[in-house]
Write a protein that binds this DNA or RNA. Structure first.
Lengths: 340, 340
DNA sequence: TCTTGACCCGAAAACGATTTCGGAGTATAA
DNA sequence: TTATACTCCGAAATCGTTTTCGGGTCAAGA
């Protein structure tokens, strides 16, 4: 059933060595035999056994990605899919495949990475959603295993990454709100430890500080990135007296939850209250009101990540090891116009 | 750097054979040596080389999935991510990983599958978004390669699948609209050839026929599953005279597009016009108006698919080879109430 | 005629694990 | 004491490729 290189050799009356070399563009094979071998391979529909090749060449032609979400459903990050698409597309471009696993942050995570790294399951890894002290990054550096990350960390380590400047993004968004006349602005933060959450919150702090606006602890709520948690957090903010006139959420889903909470209380988002998100998820453009948010080119980031990883796998040093992209504020209805 | 089984053997003063057997629960190894080998493996942090093991055992411990979307962004199917999550979770449960690729339908598709199948890149495949005459299914059957599909086909072949009864789903939805008093109901179909699109359209036809309502060709539009195409299709439907009072779209994204088109014309969806989708994507619940749609347990389907595949890989025959799930109509705002 | 080098090809050794098969040692039964 | 069985271990084959290294052939040049 399965046709191996031996079958080709027998068919062609050659040795397996010659067949292998003919197929792999070696110089010491005559053009004639090369053609003949190719033809036979085509006829017999030969495809080299990837596993055997991998064992010999010590390469798997796979890049790995471990999705670090807690809950089973990945739905808290609709943009993950675009990231995957970008990575998979770029990988396919270079005859690589993507190995996908899921493992929640925690003690089992190290074991998961060890299996992949020491077991040589893939040639390189893409690490996403970096954390402040990220043991994954530390481990991979320690092992000398090739990887790139989406996001920076806070541990003074040097490694290749792509990141979006969340600080700048939220800074822009917050300044925009301030420019509209808002003074009491709330913030719905991400769980602690997540690097992107920290950066985004920094952007908020910076903008408020520059404007001479106090960051009241009461106007800071924290969610877990889900829509429901955004709803709850917004409830807390609106219970303050006086409540904020604008709210910045750390991601789109929480912003949508926040809008829902406001609407349940009879508030008209975009008029009575401004809401801004982050990610520019597909839902953002089609919610009602449509969501003002900060946009990042997530598909292209996937491409970029994969390209960087593949390049290091080829032994070529990267011209730019660390990339920080500037996101763009997308103004829609939820932030309303100037307030009185 | 990389510690192999030879290192363990040297360290333990045993042969590689014995070490291997000790680690793999063979009976002809004394309990004492087994413990000692285990301990050394733990200390040296040994992880067997997956590739080498795969070559010998002829198994990769991977299941494959080729995403068949045309455009680079996978965003036309937000629910894909949940499917992936289900598959990846169930795979991880059994120490399997998921190999992800992307390949648009077309001539290159066969090559893509050949690489995977003949190259033995994975142990089994999950095929999604089946088509009427699906060459992927035909090919895999022909090769005798293990697989399961999400969706049926129309070629009289016998293979294991999980599917959602789209006919029933749309039938229920259409009957609901008819019950509300609608008589002129439009349908936004999927591209031809897609099996799920056909089934859903069948449900529409059946419901209309049963109610004695003519299916005017003018009230049938076709999109490509994207939001934009739903917008365009709805434009065509609203240009009819008289226009439909209700529209069923083949998926949520087109339904959202349809709503947008209606709203651009000043129509109030849920009052002037009813719109129904299919999938119960996350956006459905949070659009304005929220979308009445047909819900399918996509994450659980992923689990189910993977479980079926893994079971056949273990050589155990499936008790149920073909599963047809009944979806549920979720009534929200976009379908409005009774019309006069 | 002999040497040299270019050109092709094949034998065999990897790669790192699993698995088969036989053998040594010891205990038990005859 | 001998035969038998049982326990435990290791040598070697194996999986399907790639890659090294040496050898054979033939033509051109000395």
């Amino acid at each position: 059933m399965a046709v191996g290189i031996k079958d080709l050799a027998r068919e062609a009356g050659l040795s397996v060595a010659t067949v292998s070399k003919a197929l792999n563009e070696y110089a010491d094979v005559s053009e004639e035999t090369r053609q003949r071998v190719r033809e036979i391979a085509r006829l017999l529909n030969y495809q080299p056994n990837i596993t055997a090749r991998g064992l010999q060449s010590r390469r798997t032609s796979m890049v790995g990605l471990v999705i670090p979400t807690v809950e089973p459903h990945l739905s808290d990050d609709p943009y993950f899919l675009d990231l995957l698409a970008g990575i998979a597309d770029e990988a396919a471009e270079h005859e690589f495949a993507l190995l996908l696993t899921r493992c929640a942050p925690g003690p089992k995570e190290r074991t998961c990475y060890q299996k992949i790294v020491r077991g040589r399951r893939v040639d390189g890894l893409i690490v996403v959603r970096t954390r402040s002290q990220d043991q994954r990054v530390a481990y991979l550096l320690e092992e000398g295993f090739p990887f790139v990350t989406f996001g920076r960390t806070d541990q003074g380590l040097d490694f290749p990454f792509v990141d979006v400047d969340g600080t700048q993004g939220v800074y822009d968004a917050t300044r925009y709100l301030i420019g509209l006349g808002h003074r009491r602005i709330g913030f719905i933060a991400a769980p602690e430890g997540l690097m992107f959450g920290f950066h985004r919150q920094e952007g908020f702090r910076k903008a408020m500080e520059e404007a001479g606006l106090a960051m009241e602890p009461g106007l800071l709520a924290r969610g877990d990135l889900t829509l429901q948690s955004g709803d709850v957090a917004m409830g807390q903010l609106l219970d303050k007296d006086p409540p904020p006139t604008a709210v910045v959420a750390c991601n789109d889903l929480m912003a949508l939850g926040a809008m829902r909470a406001a609407q349940k209380r009879g508030l008209w988002v975009g008029r009575d209250l401004a809401v801004v998100g982050f990610d520019d998820t597909h839902v953002a453009a089609h919610s009602r009101p449509s969501l003002t948010t900060v946009s990042q080119p997530i598909y292209d980031i996937g491409i970029l990540l994969c390209r960087m990883l593949l390049q290091t796998l080829q032994g070529k040093p990267l011209e730019v090891r660390q990339i920080l992209l500037r996101p763009a504020l997308v103004i829609r209805e939820s932030s309303g116009g100037t307030i009185s």
